[in-house]
Design a protein around this nucleic acid. Structure first.
Lengths: 236, 236
DNA sequence: TCAAAAGTGTTCACAGTACACCCATGC
DNA sequence: GCATGGGTGTACTGTGAACACTTTTGA
């Protein structure tokens, strides 16, 4: 029992669920496989973990290869281990989800992967268990974003309240009252009002805000009304 | 790129963080290793994943071996993949945390493992990165239990409000007002009041409750005041 | 001047908090 | 009958929800 030498070794991969927002819809970045097996089918971008890197390292590498971007928001989602999940050979996959401002991405796209953005509710069929993985990622994104200031990662550094509200509405597929939304987000004290306005989307113009980085890190765990927050945070 | 045959294969293990409650304190079940390497040191219970089982299957098997219990509450915590984390050979470990009523466990203990319960704040030194894993598990337990009806898994099928309150107080290391606590828990409609009382812990006696299984599964996602719950749940 | 979107104010209902009080029972 | 812990009532406060209202500006 527990003797290392007698144990089976497995392939070990990462898959990235990349969310983006274009101002209208929440979208997912997938690639069209240019190699066998399943050439031509849609898939999450992923890769095998090499001998010297951690899974986080591999995921960051894969993200960088595809988007050209470093330092994206990244979070371990779940590990998928069904012996039958990969049709070729048993592979354990750790899924990461990442958030990205689509506009930033566009300039640095890597066409080797044949990537495409799909609206989150109009995804094509994906290989293996990738559809299931995406479903879980959507669920976790909504869950986490309800409690923590995640969604800013999907917007440019400067954004307006109406833009932020549109994003939340897209993520939760719901309408929010603008007055209540404004007050609620401002009450977190995580936003800094800037002096200039966005005049493209309305006549009056909407003030830009940016995230207050100092408070952002500190307040990450206690964003919206996380109920027994004083206790949860104080004991962590 | 992405050629299966050229990739490295790795050892793949599960580790279980087993929480228990004895009526006083939140405790963790660890084992004393009876084999090399690191014989005699304290460790989470774990095991390698075999060729035909999933990680969930392996974790359930390990739990059953140690506690004699099936069907414990179990949740995937996180995967640990640092190339250096296992001193013997690179091993990817998926951590699961489990919740167990200590009294149920006691009758079925498997002494081959040399297991011991330690209060959560007085743990011995653990091998590898197990201390870090336990810290993360404690954090996630508090986080999840604040939003979902998890902690019932740590109690017998029949329990009293004061017992439930003690448990919450042990987990959050805080005092709660009994009146507010009662009303809050009852407002979830997840508890059924029974006709008999526990007379051991007080003269007056406290009514037993049990979890309403039907509502339990349904209400799992929307327990305490999870803020935008109507939206979060409706879109999931 | 009017339409459209940004932003503010106001009211209401309800949930959380604190704390006083009553209840049942064993000694 | 009194101490002990279980359980209920209540008044206060703050937050979220709904919606009316004001502001700014381009056409």
């Amino acid at each position: 029992m527990r003797r290392y030498s007698q144990q089976k070794r497995f392939l070990f991969a990462v898959d990235c669920i990349i969310f983006g927002y274009d101002g209208q819809e929440l979208k997912l970045l997938v690639i069209q496989r240019s190699f066998e097996p399943f050439k031509g089918m849609w898939s999450l971008v992923g890769g095998f973990v090499s001998e010297t890197e951690s899974a986080e390292g591999a995921a960051a590498r894969v993200l960088k290869d595809l988007t050209g971007l470093d330092g994206l928001y990244m979070e371990q989602l779940h590990s998928f281990t069904d012996p039958e999940r990969d049709a070729v050979e048993r592979t354990v996959s750790i899924a990461y989800f990442a958030l990205i401002d689509i506009k930033k991405y566009k300039q640095q796209i890597n066409e080797d992967y044949h990537p495409a953005w799909f609206p989150i509710n109009k995804l094509p069929e994906l290989i293996f268990d990738h559809t299931k993985i995406v479903e879980l990622a959507k669920e976790k994104l909504r869950y986490n974003a309800a409690l923590h200031p995640l969604l800013f990662e999907l917007l440019p550094a400067k954004f307006t309240m109406p833009q932020l509200q549109s994003l939340y509405q897209a993520v939760y597929n719901a309408e929010f009252d603008k007055g209540n939304f404004n007050r609620k987000l401002l009450s977190t004290k995580l936003l800094l009002k800037l002096k200039d306005k966005d005049k493209l989307n309305s006549k009056k113009g909407a003030f830009y805000y940016k995230v207050d980085i100092k408070k952002y890190s500190a307040g990450f765990k206690s964003f919206l009304n996380f109920v027994p927050s004083q206790h949860v945070n104080s004991v962590l």
